[in-house]
């Protein structure tokens, strides 16, 4: 096995284990959020092994950092105890989610197996692949319309959140 393969298995196992840790931990919300951080960072490491540097960094900055810190902020602010989520009800939901997850995974595996792109030898990664230059170029040339539409959507979401928050204050 090459170093990359070993690292891939290490981070892959870490990602799966910490993701399970996040879902199955019902006693401690903060520990469960921290498991999510470990999952995100392991995924970022796998992106790095694929030479997708920008995606890896954004994975850590946005998901590993900003979003989970926001989760923690809310968890700490509300200071939820376990009583507010009765475990009995949660187990049914979790079971349903797990079954759905396995079904989607199986479907994805079947689809991947039939994908002609994966049959041949992997192509050599072009120079600068996955860097901020290439992604920035394609985002603002080929996909500029989609970028603008997404930014409009986000703007609408911000305005909506502001209106909802302001109504509470007034």
């Amino acid at each position: 096995m090459t170093v990359e393969a070993i690292l891939f298995y290490v981070f892959g196992i870490l990602a799966v284990v910490s993701a399970l840790g996040m879902v199955l931990n019902i006693r401690n919300t903060v520990a469960s959020a921290m498991s999510l951080v470990v999952t995100m960072v392991s995924l970022a490491a796998i992106f790095l092994l694929l030479e997708a540097y920008l995606v890896a960094v954004i994975q850590i900055m946005v998901y590993g950092g900003a979003i989970v810190v926001l989760f923690l902020f809310v968890v700490m602010l509300l200071n939820l105890s376990t009583d507010e989520f009765p475990p009995g009800k949660q187990r049914v939901v979790k079971l349903a989610v797990a079954v759905a997850g396995v079904a989607i995974l199986a479907q994805a595996l079947v689809a991947l197996d039939q994908n002609p792109l994966l049959a041949g030898q992997p192509e050599i990664v072009p120079e600068g692949f996955g860097g901020y230059r290439q992604i920035g170029l394609s985002l603002y040339t080929d996909y500029v319309l989609i970028v603008e539409m997404v930014s409009l959507l986000l703007l609408a979401a911000i305005v909506g959140a502001l209106i909802l928050a302001k109504r509470k204050i007034d």
Binding site: M34, V57, M61, L72, F73
Partner: peptide, 20 residues
């Protein structure tokens, strides 16, 4: 190649020590 982005990624992880 992404040195400054690395610094920002590290900085976003650094918040956890304090918060936790």
């Amino acid at each position: 190649d992404w040195g400054l982005l690395y610094i920002f990624a590290i900085g976003s992880i650094a918040a956890y020590g304090t918060v936790l």
